[in-house]
């Protein structure tokens, strides 16, 4: 079976490599990409979509179908991580540590001992002893809102400058991961649960595909945002611009949620109990 697989892989690979010789040379002026595809984008992108950033116009409008499945790939990565790592069976840790907040004394509770309530007086800490990290906590608390604001800026400003849903989503996800690192995993999960992460990642893909399907319902091609013009109450060029923003928001949501979801699973080996 293994040898059969190897033979198939080598066969397919050699066919692919053999046919790369039929490709035009990289940057060849007579290649189809240089003769009509790129010039079309460069000349018409602004008139077609009212988006000054050609990269965004190509990514989310002309090649929207491709980007939709890139988003789906990211969603699949989150799902795969979940199925590979997540341990839903609750494993009792042999030792749990609690900190008595008024005095700073650490309680070590063996298995079977009575655990204090997670209240304002006792706070559970990770088994690898965690000291007070006031500086890191304060700085992160101060910086995280600005990081999130910047992420929203990157998502919404993708029309005019480098950026877009993927980059902004990653920054948003990183801000929550920073929160998880600066406090602990349980606090982060209590703020943004795994269920919310799964829901948002699916929602992001749904927004993208839904925007495409809405165009289909309104009588145009899939992901042809100019059909959204009557819904958005703008002309067809601006409708394409707004359509790009809608799918970028979908991409941003999906990427953010998947980043956080993968982090939760990886950092705690799927237990969502104690991690990094």
């Amino acid at each position: 079976m293994r040898i059969l697989g190897l033979v198939i892989v080598i066969l397919c690979g050699s066919i692919l490599i053999y046919h790369t010789s039929d490709f035009p040379d990289w940057g060849h002026p007579a290649s189809p990409a240089s003769t009509h595809v790129s010039p079309y984008y460069i000349e018409k992108a602004l008139d077609d979509t009212a988006v000054p950033n050609i990269v965004t116009a190509v990514l989310a409008d002309y090649r929207g179908y491709d980007t939709m499945f890139e988003t789906t790939v990211i969603f699949c990565a989150g799902i795969a991580c979940f199925f590979l790592l997540r341990i839903t069976r609750r494993m009792e840790p042999s030792v749990t540590l609690y900190r008595h907040l008024p005095t700073g004394i650490t309680l070590r509770i063996e298995k079977g001992g009575k655990e204090p309530d997670d209240s304002n007086i006792f706070k559970r800490i990770d088994t690898q002893w965690v000291p007070y990290d006031l500086i890191i906590n304060t700085t992160c608390r101060m910086v995280i809102p600005f990081i999130q604001l910047f992420a929203l800026y990157v998502i919404s400003h993708g029309h005019h400058s480098p950026g877009g849903g993927f980059q902004g989503g990653v920054i948003l996800g990183a801000s929550v991961i920073l929160f998880a690192i600066s406090t602990d995993l349980r606090t982060a999960i209590s703020r943004m649960s795994e269920r919310l992460g799964a829901f948002l990642s699916a929602t992001g893909v749904f927004i993208y595909a839904g925007a495409g399907a809405l165009c289909l319902v309104l009588g145009a091609n899939f992901l042809d945002y100019s059909a959204l013009a009557p819904v958005l109450n703008v002309n067809s060029v601006m409708a394409r611009s707004h359509g790009i923003l809608i799918v970028e928001i979908g991409v941003g949501l999906a990427v953010m949620a998947v980043m956080i979801w993968i982090y939760y699973n990886l950092s705690s080996a799927g237990r969502h109990d104690e991690g990094l």
């Binding site: 890191i136 700085t139 992160c140």
Partner: peptide
């Protein structure tokens, strides 16, 4: 401004990790 806030914190965190 942001580097002035975050860079010393990052250094502090790394050194803290080293001590721990």
């Amino acid at each position: 401004v942001f580097v002035f806030i975050t860079s010393p914190t990052a250094t502090h965190a790394i050194i803290d990790a080293g001590v721990r």
